[in-house]
Design a protein around this nucleic acid. Structure first.
Length: 422
RNA sequence: GUGAGCGUAGCUCAGCUGGUAGAGCAUCGGUCUGUGGCACCGAGGGUCGCGGGUUCAAACCCCGUCGCUCACCCCA
């Protein structure tokens, strides 16, 4: 036990890896039908890209990014993908593409946080972004619809959509100051963490989990009551657009984002079975980000990121995580001549799409079938001297023990029929 | 960064008031040279996380350290 995976990273082993593939394939299928196309991004970028998008002063940059010196520049493992998508959008002049650009991505992200349930240092996200000239509320609603369609496809149970509007640069600063002022009045009743947040990030007081702070927080002013007319209208229309799509949601006035470039629509989906970190997806509108990273000020953006690790946790928790796989055929052979025939038969079966295990060395049939059983093969195809002489194969159903002798051409239809009836 | 709980075989765990390690499952082999699941027999696999201390003697007691898990902080 000399080497082990470093803290916060893990191996994804079979059979769980099959579930990962199913989830990622479902994302490609569903997002594709909404007209999204995949963007494959680098794993690292200039540190400055992330620092700019997140703001220099937070300890996200100083403590939680994997940054290192590469010759004379600092680069960082990506902690998220939105900054990279925006960088690529600007770098490749995608504002000249017709309409809004709809992109999705999936892959590992890296944050140096203390691991806990559903939180790893190398974790995975599946995300999508819409970038372009329009900030129509219908886009917000469609992005959310797509997300829910994806979760539906996976039969995720117990997902709850929370939405909020956090205003924009016209109305949020005034709200934040109002909030700060109200918090000052109750400062002494708050815990040390919340007291600190009054100064550093008043919005974050709203998602405090401390029991004794809840009653105090409930009385704080709601941002929904302090939106400017434009944000108010946008938010109302987002809700109407969700209703048009038959989407049920919870308005959660305490759902916030920490960074300045976020504005208006904010949403989050929680799912059961996740422990303390119970959000399986977060998203929102970030109309200021393209400009912040050097693009056109008129470019709007909205997107989301799904925590794939957590999505899988929740699927497994609810029993929707079973992926059936396994062997169709265990090809038991004995004797040199049978091996020759078995090698050729195995290839033909595989070409036809069957999952075939072909023993590499000669084994007695008893041992062979024992292995077939433990490998959970559906059928054993038996090929020995007798079958060879008769020009047939024996095929045994390992679940019920029935066995038939078939000509090779009949084997394929036999297997296909039994496969279909599973 | 903070706090709590836990570290004995691949896995799940037992191991009494200290007397230098065991079970079940899994793996491999045999009973079984043409047929799996069952049964029986056998084998491999552990410096008891690591280091120090106490003791005639430590998996067990003490100190330290590392790791894992969960929660807080943070959350792009």
């Amino acid at each position: 036990m000399k080497f082990q995976a470093i803290k916060g990273v893990r191996d994804i082993l079979p059979p769980e890896s099959a579930l990962w593939n199913r989830v990622e394939q479902a994302a490609r299928d569903v997002f594709g039908t909404f007209g999204f196309a995949e963007i494959r991004l680098p794993i690292f970028e200039q540190t400055e890209l992330f620092a700019r998008s997140v703001g220099q002063e937070t300890d996200i940059v100083s403590k939680e990014m994997y940054s290192f010196q590469d010759h004379d520049s600092s680069i960082s493992l990506r902690p998220e993908a939105t900054a990279s998508v925006v960088r690529a959008y600007i770098e490749h002049g995608m504002q000249t593409l017709p309409g809004n650009v709809k992109l999705y991505y999936m892959g590992p992200m890296f944050r140096r946080e203390r691991p806990q349930k559903g939180r790893y240092r190398q974790f995975y996200q599946i995300g999508a972004e819409v970038l372009g000239p329009s900030d129509a509320p219908g886009i917000d609603a469609e992005v959310i619809e797509m997300l829910l369609a994806f979760f539906e496809r996976l039969q995720l149970k117990g997902a709850v959509l929370n939405i909020n509007s956090i205003g924009d640069k016209n109305c949020r600063p005034a709200y934040v100051e109002l909030l700060r002022a109200e918090l000052q009045k109750v400062r002494e009743q708050l815990g040390a963490d919340s007291q600190r947040r009054i100064d550093t990030n008043p919005l974050r007081v709203l998602d405090s989990k401390l029991e004794h702070e809840q009653a105090i927080i409930e009385k704080l002013p709601h941002i929904a009551d302090h939106l400017c007319a434009e944000c108010r209208a946008h938010y109302d229309e987002v809700k109407r657009q969700l209703a048009l799509r038959g989407i049920t949601y919870q308005e959660n006035w305490r759902l916030v984002r920490g960074l300045d470039y976020y504005m208006r629509t904010t949403f989050e989906i929680t799912a059961p079975g996740l422990g303390s970190q119970n959000a399986v997806c977060g998203g929102g509108r970030y109309d200021g980000l393209v400009e912040l990273l050097g693009g056109q000020a008129t470019t709007k953006g909205i997107g989301f990121a799904i925590g794939t690790d957590r999505l899988l946790l929740s699927l497994q928790e609810s029993g929707a995580g079973e992926v059936e796989g396994g062997l169709d055929v265990y090809l038991a052979w004995f004797g040199a001549a049978a091996q020759t025939a078995a090698i050729k038969l195995a290839r033909r079966l595989r070409d036809a799409g069957f999952v075939v295990e072909l023993p590499a060395v000669e084994m007695k049939f008893g041992k062979s079938l024992g292995l077939a059983d433990r490998l959970k093969a559906r059928h054993a195809v038996i090929l020995g001297e007798d079958e060879l002489a008769a020009g047939v194969v024996a095929v045994k159903n390992l679940a019920d023990g029935t066995q038939n002798k078939l000509a090779e051409q009949d084997l394929f239809s036999y297997l296909r029929a039994s496969h279909a009836s599973d």
